[in-house]
Structures are given as C-alpha cells and as structure tokens.
Design a protein around this nucleic acid. Structure first.
Length: 816
DNA sequence: GACTTGGAGGTACC
DNA sequence: ACTGGTACCTCCAAGTC
C-alpha cells in the first residue's frame, strides 16, 4: 500500500511498552489519514577521552544490565552502538544507547553514572522533536508512505480514529515537487455571561470557515438570521458544536485567546452539563498543559490560538496598541468587530439578540480571515523549523531559535547540549547585565537633509563574522580573537567556525534568497519565508544571552554587543573623517548630514566603508530625509536619545520615541504632538504648528475636547495587590473591580483625570473610569499632557510654550 | 506643608 | 521564565527642611 501524505498533527502513545508515533494528515485526495510509525528511542553517553577500547567493552556490559521497572512497563537497554560524534565542537567517542521507552530516558541517564562517562545527553529533547529529526517526516511536506493498512485490532484499536485509513509506515520518501496544500481552517468563538472560566453559561458559539457561517445558541430561539441555530439547552448546544466539528473535519481549529478562554470554558461547561466534549479524532476531550499561558490541545486536530502566534512573530510590525481581535483585524483586514453593548442576557430584546449573534459570528469571521492571512507565515515557520504547527504557534522567539538549532545539529554531527537545570538558570540570572549597545548623544535641533545608514542584521552579522558562541569560546590558543567585555574582563573565541555561526550564516543567506525570490516573483509565501528567517536571525543574539537557552553563552552575547559597539564607533569616525557631521546613532544605525555633498558622494562613502568591514558585516542606506528633529530631555538641556522625527523627500513621517507613539499618553496630547511634528517638518519652521497649539489650548479651556481624546491607557502588569506604589492606573483597576468588571493581569486599563471638588494633590485621587460622570481636569491635561508633549519641540525654536499657554507674549532670542 | 530625590512602573528603541 | 540592553518620563513614597 502506498499513499501520498502531508503530515499535520503529531502525537504518540505507548503500545506494549514502546513509543508509537501517530501522525494525522491528508492524502492526495484531501482525505484525512493516519500514519503509524515506531520510534526507536536512544540517548548518548559521551566517553572521556582517555577511556580504552577494553574499558568501553566492559562499560557496555555494565550498561546492558540497566533496567527500569515500573508497574506499567519495563525499560531495557535494547542496543548499544559506539560512534564518533561532536559535542560542543569537539570530537568525542560516544555510546548511542537504545532503550525501550523514551519516557524512561531520564532514569536511564541517572543510572549511567560511571567514571568512564563524561556526560549524558539527549534524554531531555521532546519526543516528537526527536522523532521528526530521526524519521525526517517533517510537517506540511508531501511524502510517499509505503506500508501496511492497520486493521481494527492493530495497536490497541488505533483504527477507531475518525480517519479514512490508518497505515503503518515501512518506507518514507519525500516528494521534491512542491504540492500546494490548502488546509481546512475553521474558526470559532464563544460568548458567555461571565468572564471567569466556567462560572457563567455559554450563551452561543460561532463557527466560520470557507463558505461556512454558523451561530449555535440556546438562549433565544425566536426568529433570527438563517445562520443561527437554536437548541433546547446549553448541553444540546455543546453536543451540536462537537457534531459540527466532526462533520466539517477541520485541520485547524482556530480561536483568538482561545487557549486561555474559549476552549477551557467549553470544557468546563461540558463537564458541568455532563456532556462529553469529544472533539478529538479518537473521541478524547481537549487537554490542557500548564504554562505562562495554558496550552489547549485537541487530539488529531490542531488547535491554534492565533493571538499567541501573532504576539510572537508579528506584534513588532503592528501599530495597534493592543493585540486584541478588534485592533489587529482593523489594522490587517481593514475591518473590526461589530459594535455591541453587553447587557445581562435576561434583559435583551429581540433586536439586541440579533445584534449579539452577529457580533459573535463576526469574531469567528475575523479570526478565520486572520488565520487565512497568517497561513503562509504559519506554514513557512513550520517548514523551516520542522515542527508541528501546534508548537510553532505557541513557542516564544528563543524557543523557535532553539528548535531550529535542534533540527539542524545533525548536519554538524553534533550531540545536543542539555537544558539548563533549575540551579543553573538561577546562577545565570544572578550574573546581572552586561554592557549593551552604543547610543549617540544627539544635540537638539531641526536638521536639513539627513541621511540614515544602518547595518543589516548587525548583531547576527557580528556573531557570524567573529564566530561568537558557546562552542567557540575558548581559554587560550592561537587563531583566536580576544574581546574586552567590560567588568567581566575578556573573552576569547576560536576562529575556526562553530556550528552556531555557520547555522546563523545559513539563516541569513536563506533570508536573502527568499527576499530575492519575493522581488522576482512576489508571493505571500516567499514574503513569509523571508520574514521567518529574519526573525530567527534577529533573535539569535538574544538567544545566546537568554538564561534558559541550551546554548547560553553570556560571553558571546557580551562580545557581540562589544564588537558591535566597536564597529559602529569606528564607522562613525570614518564618516566624520570623510567630512560629514554625524548627528545620531543607536545600536546599528547612523544619522548624518548630507550638507553640501550630493547623493552620489554619500553612496560612494557607503561603498568605501563596506569594503573595509569585516566578515559578512554590511552597512546599507536606509533613506535620505528632507528634515529631522531632535529635542532635549524634559529634565535637562541635553538631547534626548531614542526620540526623533524624520520626514522623507516624499513627505512620509518617521516618528520614534515621541509621546505620539506612546500608548500611555492621551490621544489629545499624542495627536497634537504628531500634527506639530508634521507641520514643523513640512515647513521647516514653527509658525503653523504654533497656531494649531493655540487653537487646541483654547478648545481645552472651553471644554470642547471629546471624551475619547482624554483617555489614558496603561497596562496592568501584575495583580493589584503586588503594587508597591499605587499609581493612577492601579486605582483604575481597583475601581473596575469594585464595579464587578473583569480585571486581569495584562489588561489595558482606560481612565481619565477629572476635576475634583476638594483640592486633591495626587493624580490618583482624580482618576475616573470612562463611564463615570465628571469633567476633565483642565489643569492636568494642560500641564501633564499637552505642554510636556510639545514643550521641548518648541524649545528648539526658543519658544516657551508655557508662556504661550499663560497668554504671555513669547519672544525669540533674536528679538532681544 | 513644601520641596527634593530615588524608585517603581510603563513603554519605547534597536 | 519563556530573546538582549538602553533610555525616557511620570508619579508615588519617603526623606529633608
């Protein structure tokens, strides 16, 4: 029997004490099929250099006797092979020890406590990762599987799965020709009358897929839109939900915040109603794994919480201030959630129910559209990292980097380093910070004709060019480079490339390739691939400095920052020596004034600098700007770092660090500042901007400012009780709690500062929630929002904006 | 009670 | 705990006069 097969969801189970892999996927006809494969687990014992062949043979005899006896199974040593491998870049002789069940790898490793063994490794790699590495059966690629059909009795009744066939793999071959795989994506969303999980009832569930829209409910059964289906009670609705999922056969069931809300809620209500939420292809119920955010999984169907994927791989590109469904959809799809005022369900009228159904459906529709939009990204990440979608949509950046490393180590014949133990993590964290990037001290002013250079993937290119990693860190020796890393002294790295820099180099090259491919033939897939490689490259530096990393190397991270500093300082010097004034620089970018030079001369300078840069380091032109503005710090005369505004020759603004881009300032101050910056950069002078300010001040004093313009948004970063300083946003949280509104860590709180009857000195005493009655506090919005936001901009023109606000006549210095 | 100062807290830049 | 360090700025908390 031979089938075409695209692996989608991976799982494993024990059969007769052994690990059996179960992969759900699609065949050529789009039918859901299951491939069964046996996993042959092993771990490595790395031998000490001086161990003789005779000693090895004796050691093997001792190891062969190891058994792990448990009630349910017995793990034995199945086979031992002697192999030559690399470990941390050094050649080693190892014993590859095959065992019966991988779940016992840890206890087996504990028993390998022999003096001939210097280290035990690869007993702590996730089983499915190990399986994918060994079998090369990677997610979302197309294979030909040759094997035998498993009948009803095979593997303890595996064929009870809801699939068209189960095949035991004998041979796995990759088909090189790309086959377009379009998955069946189904999005869902629930509405409940209480936010706390399981506390209230689920009022309705919506589903959205390709040409499919449905709202299931039981609360209101009078006439409604045709997509609404009504049932007699919550239990029946839940049963129908399960039925629909089974009928629709999605590959992916996608929610938004569904890991922590929708799926756990469904499970809790199902339990309460004594309904089995048997969504799994084996009729199992969803399971939940603990973590910072719990992960909710369904056997055989990939449950994806799209929010988590967007958060890690896309949030840095979004302008949205929250990653909520509404804002993200508005930005990416140009369409937001339906407006709907929540009321207690008992008080709703017919019309309101219709609106509620529409609202619920729209959430699923948006989630589905976003899922379609992010499908290329999910696919490419999954292919590049060779891990199932379930994992790559939930992993953080460091985990993604590590996953890439794990799957690519076999190319270097490397044995994988272990995860740091709890104590090791503690020690690493206690080391504190090392010196980071260089930031140029700017001088406040409005500049004409500004040029911006930046280093392409600077930190990655430093790591690659200087070979900085755990495996190349060395004590002494020739053919090394020495890097000063501040108070930690010096670090030395061998020049012989280690796998880390080689892998990273490959990532950068693949990124370039994907980018070129995209230019030649634009497709969402090439774009997603390019982006995935870019993110991996950018996270590699942080990974080496991350205390939880297998290949943690503080020295490498510190050396990367040190060499990047050295490089940018040298480059700045070269630019200055060429006769240019450098006005700003942060980490990997340099701003200079074009002055009387023409663009060609600037580009020639760039070319010259590039010819002298080491390794793969590269400086590129970011853009030519017509004007740029830098301001002073609030508290002093000196220029503020990480705050500037530029305008391109086409009139496009680039604003960094200013209150305009900070969500914890009210829209009034932000929008005014943004307009002021725009007018000044367009005009090259402040006249029009000043008029605008005066107009706004007048509106403020006449109370003409709209409510939403004065709302301040601040995130609640920890539970209310843990705050040492009671700041305004904490008061907002307390007030919300008192009103019975949901208050969760991570929430963006909204409040405004109101006038108070008695004189109160603290800001927090004037905090009011959006729906509270009260007038905005003119003094506060003037002195704490508007003036601070524009003050140092007008300082550049020697205008004291406070005096303007007070009605005094302002003078320019030149007029004295 | 007014004022200063340091720290907590949040958010941005790269 | 879930990539790193650098920087700005507000408001509170606690100290000084």
């Amino acid at each position: 029997m031979q089938i075409n097969f695209i692996p989608i969801d991976y799982d494993y189970f024990d059969f007769q004490g052994r690990n059996i892999i179960r992969i759900i996927g699609r065949n050529e006809q789009g039918k859901r099929v299951c491939v069964i494969d046996e996993f042959k687990p092993y771990l490595y014992a790395i031998l000490k250099d001086e161990v003789t062949d005779k000693q090895i043979q004796e050691l093997i005899k001792k190891i062969e006797k190891i058994t792990i006896d448990l009630n349910s199974r017995t793990t034995k040593i199945e086979k031992i092979q002697i192999e030559g491998k690399n470990f941390l870049g050094k050649q080693v002789k190892v014993l590859k020890i095959f065992i019966t069940n991988y779940k016992d790898a840890h206890p087996v490793a504990d028993k390998l406590d022999f003096p001939e063994i210097q280290a035990r490794r690869e007993y702590d790699i996730p089983l499915l990762t190990k399986y994918i590495i060994d079998s090369k059966l990677e997610p979302l690629q197309t294979y030909i599987i040759t094997g035998e059909i498993i009948d009803n009795n095979g593997y303890g009744g595996i064929s009870n799965l809801d699939v068209s066939l189960v095949i035991k793999a004998e041979k796995i071959e990759l088909i090189k020709e790309k086959q377009e795989f379009s998955p069946k994506i189904l999005a869902y969303d629930i509405e409940s009358d209480e936010f706390e999980i399981g506390k209230g009832e689920i009022l309705m569930i919506s589903l959205a897929g390709k040409n499919f829209k449905k709202v299931l409910t039981w609360k209101y059964c009078k006439k409604s839109a045709d997509y609404v289906e009504c049932f007699k009670d919550e239990a029946e609705m839940l049963e129908k939900f399960v039925e629909y999922i089974k009928k629709l056969e999605p590959d992916f069931l996608i929610g938004y915040f569904s890991d922590g809300f929708d799926l756990p809620y469904l499970r809790a209500r199902a339990e309460k109603n004594k309904v089995k939420l048997s969504l799994g292809l084996d009729n199992s119920q969803p399971t939940f794994a603990r973590g910072r955010i719990p992960s909710s999984s369904i056997s055989g169907i990939v449950h994806i919480d799209l929010f988590r994927f967007i958060e890690t791989v896309y949030s840095q590109y979004l302008e949205s201030e929250t990653l909520g469904l509404n804002e993200v959809s508005l930005e990416l799809l140009g369409e937001g959630k339906k407006e709907f005022d929540f009321k207690h369900s008992g008080k709703m009228k017919e019309e309101e129910w219709s609106e509620f159904f529409e609202y619920n459906l729209q959430d699923s529709v948006l989630t589905w559209k976003l899922a379609e939009k992010f499908w290329p990204d999910m696919l490419e990440f999954s292919k590049i990292l060779r891990e199932p979608l379930f994992d790559i949509t939930r992993d953080g950046m460091s985990q993604l980097v590590e996953t890439y490393i794990l799957h690519n180590l076999p190319n270097y014949n490397e044995i994988t380093e272990k995860r740091p133990l709890y104590d090791e993590i503690g020690e690493r964290r206690n080391l504190g910070k090392y010196e980071g990037a260089f930031v140029f001290q700017p001088s406040p002013g409005l500049y004409e004709n500004v040029v911006m250079f930046d280093f392409t993937s600077m930190y990655s290119s430093v790591i690659v060019s200087f070979n900085l990693s755990k495996t190349t860190l060395t004590e002494k020796g020739k053919d090394t480079i020495e890097v000063g890393i501040g108070k930690d002294g010096t670090a030395r790295f061998s020049k012989k490339p280690g796998f880390f820099s080689l892998m990273l180099k490959e990532i950068i090259e693949k990124r370039k390739k994907a980018k070129q491919e995209y230019k030649k033939n634009p497709s969402n897939y090439a774009k997603a691939r390019s982006n995935a490689y870019k993110l991996l490259a950018n996270a590699a530096y942080g990974y080496q400095g991350f205390f939880g990393a297998r290949y943690y190397c503080r020295e490498a991270a510190a050396a990367t920052a040190a060499l990047a500093r050295k490089s940018i300082l040298e480059t700045i010097e070269k630019i200055q020596k060429a006769g240019y004034e450098v006005i700003y620089s942060d980490t990997d970018s340099i701003c200079l004034l074009q002055d009387k030079k023409n663009k060609q001369e600037v580009l020639e300078l760039l070319k010259k600098i590039n010819s002298q840069l080491p390794g793969i380091m590269e400086l590129e032109l970011e853009d030519f700007y017509k004007r740029g503005l830098w301001v002073s710090k609030r508290a002093s005369e000196s220029g503020a770092k990480k705050k500037y505004a530029l305008i391109t020759e086409e009139g496009k603004l680039k604003i960094r660090g200013f209150e305009t881009v900070r969500r914890d300032w009210c829209p009034l101050a932000r929008e005014l500042q943004s307009e002021v910056l725009k007018l000044i950069l367009e005009d090259g002078k402040e006249t029009r901007a000043l008029e605008l300010v005066k107009k706004t001040l007048k509106n403020l004093k006449e109370r003409k400012i709209q409510r939403e313009e004065i709302m301040i948004h601040t995130q609640l970063k920890k539970p209310i009780s843990e705050y040492k300083a009671i700041t305004p946003h904490v008061i907002a949280a307390v007030k919300m709690k008192e009103k019975g509104m949901p208050v969760d860590v991570g929430m963006l709180l909204e409040y405004f500062i109101a006038e108070t009857r008695e004189k109160k000195s603290l800001v927090r005493e004037k905090v009011k929630l959006p729906d509270e009655k009260g007038e905005y506090n003119i003094k506060y919005y003037l002195e704490h929002q508007i003036l601070p936001a524009i003050g140092n901009i007008f300082d550049v023109f020697n205008i004291n904006i406070k005096e303007v606000a007070d009605g005094k006549k302002q003078k320019k210095l030149g007029e004295f």
